[in-house]
Each structure stands twice: as structure tokens, then as C-alpha cells.
Design a protein around this nucleic acid. Structure first.
Lengths: 393, 393
DNA sequence: CGATTTAATCCATGTTATGGACTTAATATG
DNA sequence: CATATTAAGTCCATAACATGGATTAAATCG
């Protein structure tokens, strides 16, 4: 249900509209903001004042558009005060980053830890240290951490990680294991949002993150699609061939059996090899026949699964990330040809196929970005606290 | 972008919140509305007054909840004034319906016309007559038509029907062919919404409408998912078997080749037969082996395609409609068994499989429902006009 | 240098929701 | 049966916010 608008929430909402517009339109004058939002100059001025005091925007010189008349003072997002903490737990590493309001990455930490071998309690004690180090460092730089989000490799339901098979977790409640408030979300979802906010992706795309499993996050109109229970995007188990090899999910012929990291390495004759992906890349560059064939077949399977995905979800663009990013030169053609052959007759535009620039950082960045996104959409609480405790000019 | 809230739009929005809550909660007192919406009793009272004057709600006796204290007067949606016109053009018929604010169907017209044989201009002249008859009749009953929506069998982009292959249409701009304002949307989308508002479906489901083609409409949280270009839901072309029979879409092994109406009749030995579906039903009831086998294989294919759909879009429930509705007794087991075998290990709850009660009426009803839905969400304009021209008590 | 134009602020006004007081209509209690 | 209690609905003064016109500020144009 849409929420009722009360007097105070009207103010809060308009403040969010103004701040979001500042972000969208880069440096803008108050007058332009008034024009765009439909609010009056008076109202915008008051709000910009509040945002200035809260350290969320700054004035950055004057802005002349060549016309005559008094030039406006440019208002821009300020990266100096508000920041967010992004965290990620994955199979073989932990990572953290601090991102400011302008989506500039301020700090980045990564730590190799084999989380399969350790219990959730151990993993989280490492993560806690990493997070505290990041927060302390950020404080020294004058930043205020507005919140944090944690990415985990598995479906999440309201802070509860029901099962993360690759970590061996069952029913882990994250809030009980950390000493600061944190949001938790699926790694594939956050990677898609990372691509949205930090990558080159437009507002409508399907982000495919190939790891041991294959997940996907769909972004439509700048918002993540989660499905009824938050389990949408399991591209790895889309059926490629109904009588294909059995999958750990209980099905047969799932995409993961053709294009998952394990299947790919096995097909290239690198089953169980340590450092499998780098070695696969070497062989591909050397023109090894087995490796090339493995990629081509994986690409065709991915093309078939993506054909189904396009018919069902109609994404504007498809972004390949995770291990598919370095393999993109070899996957691109088979994927695209398979999709074009199957889609072109029905659609004017087959979705464009691109590669992620972020690689493994996407989820951690997306986690921090989620907090920033929320602050920008609802800056009221931050402004309100800054108001009662006015910051020195 | 979220719109800025101005003083007048605050009022408009809150009015919508109140009316939506009246619909959701059936007969409610003003006090309960205030409690639920978070607005004060005073505000709610004023708004209910406006809605009463506009004829959108009525007071229906007192409402006692067994407690002591003054009983509240129940406020309910009123079906007496505001209504909507739903229209549908399909391959072999036209239909129209008038639905009031309570989603009660007031009028229903259908007309058998072979629209393949006639030009869009002819088709629309029939439709115009049908619509005018419906509107005139509704006026006589004291109803005011708040708007109309038209369902067409093909993808629609902002009033333009780019191609409706089964009608032989190309680039038909609907507004040019009708003499009253109308929204246009895809038949599969509106059928899903019809199921949402008039059927037994909950707020999260995938509605599968099996006709010559197979379309699907996904509803999540009470809203239709349309994808980036409005082309989502083409379940008929999800890949069931990558090397299967060629499809008219250019692909191979699409679901339509296994479970589309034509494929189904062919497999049952009824290829090209007139009245194919009724005859298939007769044979099924008689226990014909070919017919039973055809349904079983179609059901299995549907199960495979739905498995992919569930992994990607995570619907809460799956509703089979169109020709799949009468065939449900024979499709149910193969579909469910296929899905359970492939999904159960990964998901706690395999989506429930149900059948539509609406059948062929779903799209026409959904079209009218869309107008009603919009009026309920934003009653301000209707109230505003009723205000300047006050209705007699 | 004065006229013009646009930006930003100031101030009086208008609209809306708020919150407490009041009226009304029922049940419970003695 | 009268009175207390409780909750619904309305009234009225107030507060919060945005509005819109006037004013001041800072630039360009002629």
C-alpha cells in the first residue's frame, strides 16, 4: 500500500526528491532544481540549506549557462561527510569497502580466508575485525558511516541465511554474529546493483554472475527484481536440455551443468585443478583445442538459457560478470550467435551483450551502494540529526 | 523518479490511500481507517465526506465489534456511480464489459467476428458500435464511465500495436480508430490482471494463458511485471529442448511446439480439425489413448518450461488459464510431477499449481479492472469534478 | 552606466493535517 | 433505570509546510 502523506513525511519526501535530483543532474542551481522538481524556489532553497548543514551537498562555484542574468551557485553531492560500509563473505575471501555519497570508493580491504573450512562464528569474527578497521579508518577521514550491507553467497530472507551450500551454512542469523547493525542480501542481487551504480550498465539489464554456481540479477527501471520470495534469478538452474546430466538441484540439464565453473573446467580437462580459471585462460590464449571447445559449448548453453530468460523477463541488456568476465572474449560469439538465431525473428532488438568491468568487486560495491541509495532516497533522518546538533559552518 | 509532494498532491494522494483502504478492508469505520492509514480521525472524516459526495463510497449501517462504546458507521465502496469499460479484440470475437467500482460486472457483450478476414478499420467499426451500446446502457443505469482499456493479442507500445500476427495487423495506432479515449495493452498482461482482481489468485502468481500462442503474465506484490520493453512473459518460446522442432519464432524446441494449441491437437490426431479443443476434451473423457498421451507430453513440456520460469522469476503460484483451463484435469499431474522432480530439492515450497476460473473473459475483465484500479489509486480528479458540481444528496 | 535578466532570499498568505475538546451513541454496571 | 464508561465522529484553534509575489543580488547587453 502507498503510505499516507503527513505533514512531516511530505517534508521528508521532498527532501529526498531534491537530493536525488542533485545526484541525477550533477551540479545544478537551486533555480533549476525548482524547475525540475516542480517545487518553488523558496522551498528548494530551504532544503538545500538543510542538506548543506548536514554535509550531504556542497556549493561548488557559480554555474553560468551563457545566458545573461545572475549566475546560479552550483550544488553538488558532497562526498565529505556521509559514507557507507559494504561487506562481503564469499567462499574463499572476505572483503569490505567504504563508499561516500558520490559513490567514490574511499577504502577497500580484502582478506583471503577459506570459509568452507571455518565455522560461521570464526568467519564472522574475521569479518568483524575487518569492518571495525574500515570504520575506524573512515572516521579518521571525517566520514560518518550511515549504515552497512553484507553480501552472502546464498538466498537471504529478512536477515536469515537459510542455506549457503558453498559455505556449509544452515540458518545463520547474521545480526546475532555482528556487533553493529547490518542489512544482508544475496551476492548475485548486490552484484547486479553494483553493476548498476558503479559499472557502465544502463537502467535495464540482466547481470549474470558466473561463479561455482550461476546467479543472475535483473534490474528494471533502476530497481532490482526479486520475485515473490526473493528467490528470482537462479539462471544456473534454467533447463538447457531436459534429459541432460543430473544437477545437484535435483533437476537434469541445468545450465550449471554446462557452463558452471566446475563443468567448464572439467570439459577443458582441468577438473579439480587448483587455480583452475587462470590455467584455463592460459590454455585459451595458447589456442588449446579442448579449452576452446569447452568455452564454445558453454557459450552455446548460456545462449540457450539466456534465450529463455529474455523471453520471460525482457531485459534491455545482458551483462556477463564473475568468471564469465575474463572468459568473455571466448564466450561472446557463441552466446550471441545462439541468442540471435533464436530471438531475432521475434524481437526487433536482441539484447546487447556486454561484459562487467567490476568483476569480483561488484557485490561488495553494490552492498555499500545500497546504503547510499537509501540515504539519498530518504535523507530526512540524517538531516534531522544534523539539525538538532548543528555542525559548524 | 518519485514525484515531489505539493500541498494539493498531498491531499490527492491521501484521498487515494483512504479509498484504497476502504476497498481492501471492506466495510470500515472512519476511526478504523484513521488507525490503519496513520492519518487523524479529522482528516479521514473530511475525506470520507468528499468520497461520499462523489458517489464513490456509501455508508452502510453501523458496525459494532462487540465492544462497548459508540458504534461506527460502516463505509463501503459504492458501485452506483463510477464504472469502467473493458474491451477486447481477439482472433474470432470482440467483447466488452462494464464493471463498477466494487468490481461487479454490470454488463457483458460478446460478438463473434472473424477478425483475420477483416481489416483493422472494419474490426474497429464493429468495436465502436459495441462500445457505444455498452456506454449508453451503463448511462441509463446511472453509471458514469471513468475510462476504458482495450486488450489486443500482441505486444503494445504506448498505444501502438506494432504487430499482431494472428490478426494480420501492422503498426495499428488504436487512438486513430476510436472516437473515445482508450488505453491499450497486451491480452496476456490484462488476463493476468483479470485473474488478480476477479479470480481467486493471490497477489503473487504467474498466469499462463494457453491459446494458439502461449503467453504469461507475472504479478508480484499486486503489480504486473512488464520487463524493460514490455515484452516479458513470452513463456511460449522458452526453450524446452534445444534441438527440438523448429518454431515460427526462429528458435527450436520452444514450449509452443509441445504445448501450443496446434501442437497439442496434432499430437492427439486432431490436426486442423474444426472445434478442435471441444473434440479433444470429448476424447480425453472417453479415455482415448492418443489424446491422453498428447496431454501428458504437453504437460511435461509445460513443466520443464515452468521450471525455468520459477527459477528465474520466483512466482508464488502458477495459474493455468486459456485452453489450459478445461484441460487442467489432464495437465495437472504431469506438470506438477515434472516441476516437483526438478524444483523440490532447491526450494522449500514448489509453487502451487491452480486453474483459472475466468477462462476467456479474463482479459476483458482485466481491461475494465485496470481503469477501476487507477480510479481507486487516484480518486482526486473524480472527487474534484464532483465537488464543483455537487451531486444531490 | 542604466536596462534587463536571472538567482536567491524574504515575507505574508493559503492549504492541509494535527490534536485536543466536544458531542453522540452505544454498552456495562450498580 | 440511572449513571459511568467507552468509542465514533465532529468542531475548532494551531502548527507545519509550500506558495507566490516582492525584494535584493549579480551577471550581461546596449
Amino acid at each position: 500500500m502507498t503510505q499516507a502523506v503527513r505533514h512531516d513525511s511530505m517534508r521528508a519526501r521532498n527532501l529526498g526528491v531534491v537530493l536525488a535530483e542533485v545526484r541525477r543532474s550533477g551540479p545544478v542551481t537551486r533555480a533549476a532544481l525548482a524547475e525540475i522538481t516542480g517545487l518553488t524556489k523558496t522551498t528548494v532553497s530551504k532544503m538545500v540549506g538543510d542538506l548543506l548543514r548536514a554535509g550531504m551537498v556542497t556549493e561548488s562555484g557559480t554555474l553560468r549557462d551563457g545566458e545573461r542574468g545572475r549566475p546560479g551557485t552550483a550544488v553538488t553531492l558532497s562526498g565529505g561527510r556521509v559514507a557507507a560500509l559494504g561487506l562481503e563473505i564469499n567462499v574463499d575471501y572476505l572483503s569490505a569497502c567504504v563508499v561516500d555519497l558520490t559513490l567514490t570508493v574511499r577504502l577497500r580491504y580484502a582478506q583471503a580466508v577459506d570459509n568452507r573450512a571455518s565455522s560461521p562464528v570464526e568467519t564472522f569474527s574475521h569479518l568483524r575485525r575487518l569492518a571495525h578497521r574500515a570504520v575506524d579508518e573512515a572516521r579518521l577521514a571525517g566520514l560518518v558511516i550511515a549504515g552497512s550491507t553484507l553480501a552472502v553467497p546464498g538466498p537471504v530472507d529478512d536477515g536469515l541465511v537459510h542455506a549457503a551450500p558453498n559455505l556449509g551454512w544452515h540458518d545463520v542469523r547474521v545480526a546475532d554474529l555482528l556487533d553493529f547493525p547490518v542489512e544482508v542480501d544475496n551476492e548475485a542481487n548486490l552484484a547486479a546493483l553494483g553493476e548498476l551504480w558503479f559499472g557502465a550498465a544502463p537502467g535495464d539489464f540482466l547481470h549474470v554472475s558466473g561463479e561455482i554456481g550461476i546467479g543472475a540479477g535483473l534490474v528494471v527501471g533502476g530497481a532490482l527484481f526479486r520475485g515473490a520470495r526473493g528467490l528470482a534469478g537462479e539462471l544456473g538452474h534454467v533447463v538447457v536440455s531436459p534429459d541432460g546430466p543430473a544437477c545437484r538441484c535435483g533437476g537434469r540439464g541445468c545450465l550449471e551443468q554446462y557452463a558452471g565453473q566446475d563443468a567448464l573446467l572439467r570439459a577443458a580437462g582441468l577438473a579439480g585443478a587448483p587455480e583452475g580459471v587462470p590455467r584455463l585462460l592460459e590454455r585459451l590464449e595458447a589456442g588449446h583445442r579442448d579449452a576452446l571447445g569447452a568455452c564454445e559449448r558453454a557459450g552455446e548453453a548460456l545462449g540457450v538459457a539466456l534465450t529463455s530468460a529474455v523471453h520471460l523477463m525482457d531485459p534491455g541488456t545482458i551483462v556477463l560478470g564473475g568468471v564469465f568476465a575474463p572468459l568473455f572474449p571466448w564466450l561472446r560469439d557463441p552466446v550471441r550467435e545462439t541468442m540471435t538465431a533464436r530471438l531475432a525473428a521475434m524481437r526487433h532488438a536482441v539484447p546487447e551483450l556486454t561484459v562487467s568491468r567490476l568483476g569480483g568487486d561488484a557485490a561488495t560495491l553494490g552492498a555499500a551502494g545500497q546504503v547510499i541509495h537509501r540515504v539519498v532516497a530518504d535523507p530526512w533522518s540524517h538531516v534531522a540529526t544534523a539539525r538538532t546538533d548543528p555542525a559548524p559552518r
